[in-house]
Simulated scan of single mutants.
Amino acid sequence: MSRVVVVTGTDTGVGKTIVTAALAARAVDNGERVLVVKPVQTGVGGPDADPHDVATVAGLTGVDVVELVALDEPLAPDTAARRQGVAIPTVREHVSRIRDLLTSGYDLVVVEGAGGLLVRLDADGGTLLDVARDLTFALRRRTDEGISSPVEVVVVCRAGLGTLNHTELTVTALRAVQVEPAGLIIGAWPSDPGVAETCNRTDLTRLTGVPLLAVVPEGSGSLDRPTFLASAPGWFS
């Protein structure tokens, strides 16, 4: 049974995909076999389609990837599915699929969310918070039986102004369902940080009580694979 890391963010565009790749790269550096799962991807249709996040991760790291649902418009998944006129799996079905993948021989399965923690992933109001909670409690029961480890939830946050509020709100939401975040990761650290970024780097842990696991340099997604794989382990504390 694999161990699981769920990657969520304080907002969209905070660097979740590059953080997901960095987590995968660190595990590869430790000799682990890694699978990255993206339950729902949006914005991949039309002439200005976004790249698939799993393709970005695979390109940077070479690990195995799985995308469960892809939707055309760059909107919240439930909205994108409704506008596209397609049915999408429920969060419960996503959790079931992920649990099946945990028996596939991987040491680590990284699950990357879409947008922030409370973005609707299905038509029933299910969110990544529900995925994290359901996986945590399912695997916690199995841990009591000596079978597997519980889920770790990593919160990706911004470096600049506003991040303290957004991060505290995300951490509070997780704790409200008895899921304690394993750590915070700053998704894009500027090359020339200002006073806000410098203070936030300390204050994020001081105000949330959650450790800062890593700081990812801005622009890391443009590195080639060998450089990314060599660099990513050093971003972690």
Rank of each mutant, 00 (worst) to 15 (best):
P51T: 01
H52C: 03
R97A: 13
G43H: 03
V34L: 03
D29T: 07
G59M: 06
P47R: 08
R92W: 07
P150I: 06
G146K: 05
V57T: 05
G126M: 09
N30W: 10
E32L: 09
A22T: 01
S149P: 02
T61Q: 04
T103R: 10
A123R: 13
Q84I: 03
D124T: 13
V86E: 14
S148A: 15
D124S: 09
D72E: 14
D53G: 01
E112W: 00
S104I: 02
A27P: 09
P74M: 03
T127C: 12
G45P: 14
G146Y: 15
A80T: 13
L71P: 01
A76L: 02
L23N: 10
G85Y: 01
A114N: 11
G31Q: 07
D78Q: 12
V119Q: 07
E32W: 02
R92I: 01
R92P: 04
A21N: 08
S104E: 11
Y106G: 03
G59Q: 03
G45T: 03
L121P: 12
P77T: 10
G46W: 10
L129Y: 07
R33Y: 13
A138S: 13
A87E: 14
V28C: 09
L102V: 12
V119R: 08
H94D: 11
L102Q: 02
L23W: 00
V57I: 14
I88Q: 15
A80M: 04
G126H: 12
T90R: 14
A27Q: 06
R83W: 07
L118Q: 10
D50K: 09
L128V: 03
D48T: 11
D64Y: 07
D124I: 00
K38S: 09
D48S: 07
V131N: 09
E93P: 11
P89L: 00
V95L: 10
V110G: 08
G126Q: 10
V91S: 03
D53V: 02
E93F: 06
L60G: 06
V65N: 13
L117Y: 07
D72Y: 03
P74R: 04
H52L: 15
R142G: 08
G116N: 05
A55K: 08
L108I: 14
A24T: 00
I98R: 15
D130H: 13
R141E: 15
Y106W: 04
A87R: 15
G125A: 10
V91M: 08
L139D: 07
V63R: 07
D100S: 13
I88V: 14
S104D: 08
V109D: 09
E93W: 05
A25P: 15
A58K: 15
E112V: 02
T136P: 13
A55C: 00
D72T: 01
L129F: 03
E73W: 02
G59D: 07
P51W: 00
A80I: 13
V28S: 05
S96T: 11
L129M: 09
S96K: 13
N30R: 15
V95R: 15
L35K: 08
A25F: 07
T136W: 03
T103C: 02
E32T: 01
R99L: 15
V110K: 06
D53T: 01
L135I: 06
G45K: 09
A24M: 07
E145Y: 08
S149V: 14
V34W: 01
D130N: 13
P77D: 04
